[in-house]
Design a protein around this nucleic acid. Structure first.
Lengths: 374, 374
DNA sequence: TTTACTTATGGTAGCGCTACCACTATCGTC
DNA sequence: GACGATAGTGGTAGCGCTACCATAAGTAAA
């Protein structure tokens, strides 16, 4: 400590670094300022966008920064910079597989933007309402709402009432939120259906998802459109209602396999139902994919756990939540300056993951067995 | 300064809240102090462990905290309190279901203890090594290592070499880490086996887990001990090797069901293999649980997704990671003061979750059907 | 030249919290 | 009863950074 003071004595006229009260030895903005022979303010300006700084000064500062390997202190930054943005990630979705990806994406983005992310679970949408109120009172400025929360009108209404920024991630009624991050469910289902048709199938069963989630309808539409575009008959019996659960997938598959002639492929609106379809098929001694092609949607863990692994649609969940976090940040800061309410709707690309549960219909005698692929 | 001095003159004797320079309206420690009629210091003391504070004062402060819904400002805290503890949660476990729980537990604990948690994924253990080095260079003081990372000798060696605190969560060689948080795998497997025996089974098949994970052996031992204690013959053919994967569970089950007379129950070392056992049984037109009882281990999402839902062992994963985080915090701070290396080994309670996949053997004609339970 | 305005920089005062020390009561202890 | 301990509290000074204003130049308009 005293030593440091001695060292300062050598300095020409720069900003004297105070003796540190507590441990720690990371370079501070003052160190950089001394090194670059300017004031800490100038350094701050350079670091934060370099507005109104002479080019030479700018460069001198940058050189000092590099030399000292200076990293701005997050804590100090957000303390000095006024309010720290705090947003909440709510969920009542029991799917752990989603959740992990959700968290990873949100966490990364939040921590690199110095945003405080509160993670809140609740058992159901109605329980979410008081929690949201409380969080909002506690200074939470925005909410990230994955389905099914974002499909709940009461939740979205409350977000509106509170003037909080709500971003729906994944399927949801985009129009109700201040923003949303989605994939194109319609197009994804369209592509998958087209893929199945391309394998040679024409009797393709479809299991609809939970009617309360908007994505279900979009996926159904995609299926229908692809069938129509391929000039294939849409057979009512081959479209059955499910509820996104394994159990509902079993019932749906049983009813599909009773249709005569039975479908040669089943496209389920999510992986859990697709897994159930595989199980039911196996019980009826139908091989997958030789006798029956089964495709899912979401690429949850289930899809790559069971055998055969499912051909499915992967949503870039991580990027989606990351994008949700940064969108909220943008909207909140935009609202601070102007009073209008910007909204942002982002659509991210999905991916058709081909695994081992699809093949050409069996009349073709298993010529092209599903070629695995991660 | 001068202005402030003037303002001070007006002060009665309480702490006047200064006019805020920038936006923001979250209650500060000064607000609480005013409310509780004491100094900010006292509030700080109460918040941070309440040492040397009179009981009444303590209560008054807590009341004020509750009334104002005061939350300490993280940034200010870590800025004032010197270095913030940073620890990393590494994982190469592909199981998303675990991961979600892991993250939730660690996150909660980290955020309430103002610890910065870095979440790092890596594809395999050897990739982990350079990452750990880098994180350590970057100031990470401790690592949380779930299996299979903590079963990897190279990883544990590196942690030792780096002088970093490593806590193994879940199964692992406790002795290699500075601490571990586990459940008693032996006892849990013992209990489950005893439970199955209690239902009336005597020919109980067992599927061993991945031989590279220490827990596998412990679970096997538990099974063997329970069989012995019940004076039941341990039949070699009824113990088959698996690898914790669905696929290996299928193969194992197929071989188990070939044994004559076939087992009336199968205890798999994890849920994925148990789910595979159910699938194989169904394919062979054996009803679960009427014809075959199947029990798993871990209570992953899979267990409650498939039908019938699995009777299994639940690990308190959330508490386990939470405990891991606080253990690291304790060890790191202990090391700061004394130079000896404390270690901490925690064992948390598991829970046998009874669902619908177990029943008395079929000779008893499905008298006691599995009584569901969350 | 003066006024006005722009550009580049510095000074100062905090952000909300805690470390550190100082101080007052209330105890023993000899 | 004087003395040092100890519990309980308050004051002060920062942590590293940025908002805000002041200043000192230079540049354009009057």
């Amino acid at each position: 400590m005293a030593m440091q003071a001695v060292m300062e004595g050598l300095k020409p006229q720069g900003y004297i670094k105070r003796v540190k009260q507590r441990g720690g030895n990371a370079p501070t903005i003052a160190d950089v300022a001394a090194q670059a022979n300017c004031s800490p303010m100038t350094v701050s300006r350079v670091i934060n966008g370099g507005s109104r700084v002479k080019a030479e000064t700018h460069e001198a500062v940058m050189k000092a920064v590099r030399k000292l390997n200076y990293k701005p202190n997050r804590a100090a930054r957000s303390l000095a910079g006024g309010e720290q943005l705090r947003i909440a990630l709510m969920f009542d979705n029991p799917s752990a597989s989603y959740l992990a990806e959700f968290l990873m994406g949100a966490l990364d983005e939040a921590s690199s933007n110095d945003i405080h992310l509160e993670v809140q679970s609740c058992d159901n949408a109605s329980e979410a309402l008081p929690i949201m109120r409380k969080l909002h009172d506690g200074g939470i400025k925005g909410f990230i709402l994955p389905p099914p929360l974002c499909d709940n009108q009461a939740v979205m209404d409350l977000a509106n009432e509170l003037d909080a920024v709500a971003i729906a991630v994944g399927p949801g009624k985009a129009t109700d939120a201040h923003g949303s991050v989605i994939i194109d469910d319609f197009q994804a289902a369209y592509d998958m259906t087209k893929h199945i048709i391309g394998l040679g199938h024409s009797r393709i069963g479809f299991i609809i998802g939970n009617p309360e989630q908007v994505a279900s309808g979009r996926r159904l539409s995609g299926y229908l459109a692809a069938m129509n575009d391929a000039k294939l008959d849409v057979i009512d019996e081959l479209i059955v209602q499910g509820r996104f659960t394994y159990r509902s997938g079993m019932a749906a598959t049983e009813s599909l396999l009773k249709v005569d002639p039975r479908p040669t492929a089943i496209f389920a609106s999510n992986d859990d139902m697709a897994a159930a379809a595989v199980a039911v098929a196996h019980r009826q001694h139908l091989d997958v994919p030789t006798d029956l092609t089964v495709c899912g949607f979401d690429d949850t863990e289930m899809a790559s756990t069971i055998w055969p692994e499912l051909t499915t649609i992967r949503q870039p969940i991580r990027q989606m939540t990351a994008s949700a976090v940064s969108t909220i940040a943008r909207i909140v800061s935009a609202r601070r300056t102007s009073s209008n309410w910007p909204t942002e709707f982002t659509t991210l690309p999905y991916e058709l993951i081909r695994r081992d549960s699809d093949a050409a219909p069996s009349l073709a005698k298993r010529t092209s067995s599903g070629s695995g692929q991660s």
